[in-house]
Design a protein around this nucleic acid. Structure first.
Lengths: 233, 233, 233, 233
DNA sequence: TGTTAACCGAGACGGTACGTCGCGTCTTTCT
DNA sequence: AGAAAGACGCGACGTACCGTCTCGGTTAACA
């Protein structure tokens, strides 16, 4: 992959990306993912990556700066697939499928490890957080056609006044799953996925994700002022 | 709270919980929280706790086993407040207030630190994860009266066939916020909170959280089988 | 060796010198000397000492601070022998023997290594320099009886006016050897040693090392002021 | 000195010594000396020389092989001055002046640095040692006229049987100073210098440096056999 | 006057050792 | 007997400098 327009590290390794440099980069990314699967994020060490990639520790620091950089780069790689949202013929079907995909990927013992490892990493590394943020931004952008199709099918009211917020709708279908998986750490299954999808559809039908109408709704907010902390230890 | 019925570490420190032991435990918990605020979870060290609590490192290991134990114990403490859900007179108002509390507590630079630190800790420590899970379980249990009031007010259909799932409803109102805060790491404000509350209410009205009817809904699920990974790097 | 009143490092390892601490110290000193013999000073590494002494690198730094400290400590050990100056029955004989000892010890391939290593170390470490200085101070102090005997034998004029400077005399006998060994790096043999001894004796007879007369001699110095540098690259 | 007849490195840089090559070499030598003054020998790095000379690191290795070569080359430069020994009109005066020069050059904080740095370097580099050796050889050769004048003045007995060893005499006057400066690391001042000069003169008068008589003296050596090590740690 | 070989600048890299941090264990000493 | 105090083994950190290599670009000697 001689082309690599995105700049993971501004320092070395970006000026002469031919030959060895590129091979090195790929090896490193593989090692990072392998390390995540093997030990999880907290157990991932630079030295492990060095050993398993055949790239010397010093070089890793030179080019990626730190573990954070390594992870961010690995995430870039992960984002470069050609995933497309499901297309089942109905909005609820699509969202269900989407939600079930989430559940499946984080339930499967193999794939879940590296995924949650990166989410964990985002808590400790600005760089990883940014990479993760970009990753999901991209994912949900790819979901827009899903909503578009629903509008075309007439399942959602034609968006006269600004259109429906496709991103918000997709997020709504996934949010409860991630919440349960990584915050409250409750068990999730397909039932949970289906419920999340159903809730999102219901909210969409109620116009919650229609920006223009949102204005009206917000206007009626009673602006409760609380000082207590609810969901925070 | 002189005695500690729940046993964080079964070994020493549980036999003679009077006097010094109790004082020690409190000091340790304070130090843990202070450490979290100061350095975040990844920067929290046993040695820091030892210094700031006046309890020797060796003792910390004897009684709490490791950092995980220290955190879990501190979480127990955090859960022992007398928080109650908001009561604004309407279901949507209550949920909005609830959601805004979440946003406020994780937006405030002071309170957000220790909160997200513990969530981060849960990724690296089984013990912390369990403690966090219990914490949220308790919180959402306390939200049941909120839903109950709505039913009594007639805002929600009387729960003839098993009643509404209060926990699911409350979670639905909070999930999108946590999702954006800690997974996709998008900016969150009161508008987001209001939208989340509205979506939850809409879903509730549509009967999504009514178990009995849930059966029916699930029955219509087309059981899409996907192998791709959607939301996972 | 439970006693060890001299404090090589003020930090750890000095408070509780019982048992392990003492054993550790001896092992480390052996490893240091072995390292010097094997690689010379520039090739001596802390990691080598760690491996060959069985004491962990971290501990070495904790107790000795750095390579310098390790060397200084090893020097202390070396100084703790019971060397006494030769006693051949005549001043010149004694000085010859002394000078030949020097030549022998730095000519022998085995013993010379660690010796010159420490001299080399003194160039790079204040601590090693101090230790070396103390070592020679002690050695030459032990030579005083040698001169004393010569006075008693009548070989040297009775020291009426302040006595002869025993240290200066002994140093005079050794200086040319060290000079040739380590500065000009010329070959040195027993002939050189004998010449140095003879020169020292001649100077002593001429009263060069008799402080009181020194005053007179110095008075006649013409105080040449030169700006050029003679012996310095 | 455009061309460089002596070959520090037989490889590159010797075939086309015109223009840039010569300029480069001078710049490098300056940088080496500057580095010595700034950080001392142990702190002198190839990278420093590269930066401060404007010559790339790779080139330094190509032409000088290593730090040692750089130093040896710099020493060659230092030896190429037109120093001559003092001429005060008397042997002792000359030697005093000589000795005081030594003291002065190694006492002055500016000039002493690079001088002792090179002596230190000789401990770690064969090449530097050879260069240093040659340097002093040359210096003491230049001192021969000094002794010659004394003979002509009648201060020293006419050298009938092989003449006096001028080199040994000059060395004798300097040795105690270097010994104290770099071995025992005692303070030295002009008094020390004068004493050294006086001792050398006395020894010379006693015929110590007259080779022919040396034979006789050595014959009387009693060949003491010692096993202890005197001056060596 | 071109060619061509020697040389140089630039940058990345594998590698050794550094000196430090924090962990978790152990021993010793106090009370 | 439990706790305080300290030393230690241990693994990993992030850095400095080493010496090597590859890649272009320049330059000087020679055809």
């Amino acid at each position: 992959m001689p082309e690599a327009p995105e700049s993971p590290a501004p320092g070395p390794g970006t000026r002469r990306p031919g030959g060895r440099t590129a091979r090195t980069r790929a090896a490193v990314r593989d090692a990072v993912l392998a390390g995540l699967v093997e030990h999880g994020y907290p157990g991932l060490t630079v030295e492990y990556v060095a050993e398993h990639s055949g790239v010397h520790k010093t070089t890793l620091y030179r080019r990626w700066g730190s573990l954070e950089g390594l992870l961010a780069d690995a995430l870039d790689l992960a984002g470069e697939d050609n995933w497309t949202p499901p297309d089942t013929g109905s909005l609820e079907g699509d969202l269900r499928a989407l939600a079930r995909e989430v559940v499946a990927s984080f339930t499967d013992p193999v794939t879940s490890v590296s995924g949650s490892a990166i989410i964990a990493a985002a808590f400790q590394s600005r760089q990883a957080a940014d990479a993760l943020s970009a990753y999901y931004e991209e994912r949900f952008k790819r979901c827009e056609p899903l909503v578009q199709r629903a509008v075309e099918r007439g399942e959602l009211p034609a968006a006269r006044e600004g259109g429906i917020d496709a991103g918000a709708l997709s997020r709504a279908a996934c949010a409860p799953l991630f919440f349960r998986l990584f915050i409250t750490r409750e068990p999730v299954d397909e039932r949970t996925a289906d419920q999340a999808a159903a809730a999102a559809v219901a909210a969409a039908h109620a116009g919650v994700f229609t920006p223009a109408r949102d204005e009206e709704r917000v206007a009626s907010a009673s602006g409760a002022k609380e000082t207590g902390t609810h969901t925070q230890p």
